[in-house]
Design a protein around this nucleic acid. Structure first.
Lengths: 121, 121
DNA sequence: GCTGTACTCAACCGATCGGTTGAGGAGACG
DNA sequence: CGTCTCCTCAACCGATCGGTTGAGTACAGC
């Protein structure tokens, strides 16, 4: 799993980790604070944090023996970009297909035109 | 992995599956067509498709012996909602923290209550 | 009906994942 | 110094994952 996007998606595929992200969105927290609500060992939480860190979703600094965890917002942009791209394509195509189906009750056609006008902004 | 969002994120954590989604955004395709560019067996592709289907990202219909795969755009909304929520929170907080740091060169952490107690042992 | 095409199901395999326990490392504090 | 708190590293374990091969299902066409 080399690429960044895969690590990000994989990191967020776990509900516990998504929950941690949600908590961190409200402010930095120590490992102990994050571990609080979950019924797992501190080591497990530490591992989750490592996964999030490797994905670039959080960063850990040092404050005495505490390791405050900070949510990195930039990564969300990466996902949003990926998402928006295909979401728009798919929705646009969906609208177009719907249109095509209405004007073509039977038979087949060679190939759809590369583009059409009138797509909403 | 019961919840929908986890399945969606997990499905997209694989570059091959993201690639398939990208391809499907341009139009429906059969399993064979999707398998084309990848150096894996048809069965592996079929499995990937099943993962995407279980996540609600695609649907499979029947056309003679072909099984055309269709991208379901709605699911992207689910992710976008989740993303946007925390992205906004995090960025807002980031801006706020930045401001706070400037007016607070040292000292004075809120130091949340050391609640705790119990758990294991 | 037989054959070929398109695809799925089932069993298996090595690698990774999420969790555990156990053993520390780093720093505050008596 | 010793000790306590906070946290990480290492080893292990069962479950799941991504891939394989082999067999089977569904349909078209001769």
């Amino acid at each position: 799993m080399a690429d960044r996007l895969s690590r990000v998606f994989a990191a967020l595929a776990d509900p516990t980790r998504r929950d941690m992200v949600a908590r961190l969105a409200a402010g930095d927290a120590t490992v102990n604070e994050l571990a609080g609500p979950y019924q797992v060992t501190l080591q497990a939480v530490s591992k989750h944090l490592k996964v999030l860190e490797d994905a670039g979703l959080v960063s850990r600094t040092r404050d005495a023996q505490r390791r405050p965890v900070h949510l990195e917002a930039e990564v969300f942009d990466l996902m949003t970009k990926w998402l928006e791209r295909y979401r728009r394509e798919a929705e646009e195509r969906y609208r177009r297909l719907d249109d095509v189906l209405r004007s073509m009750p039977d038979d087949v056609h060679p190939a759809p035109p590369p583009h059409e006008g009138g797509a909403p902004t």
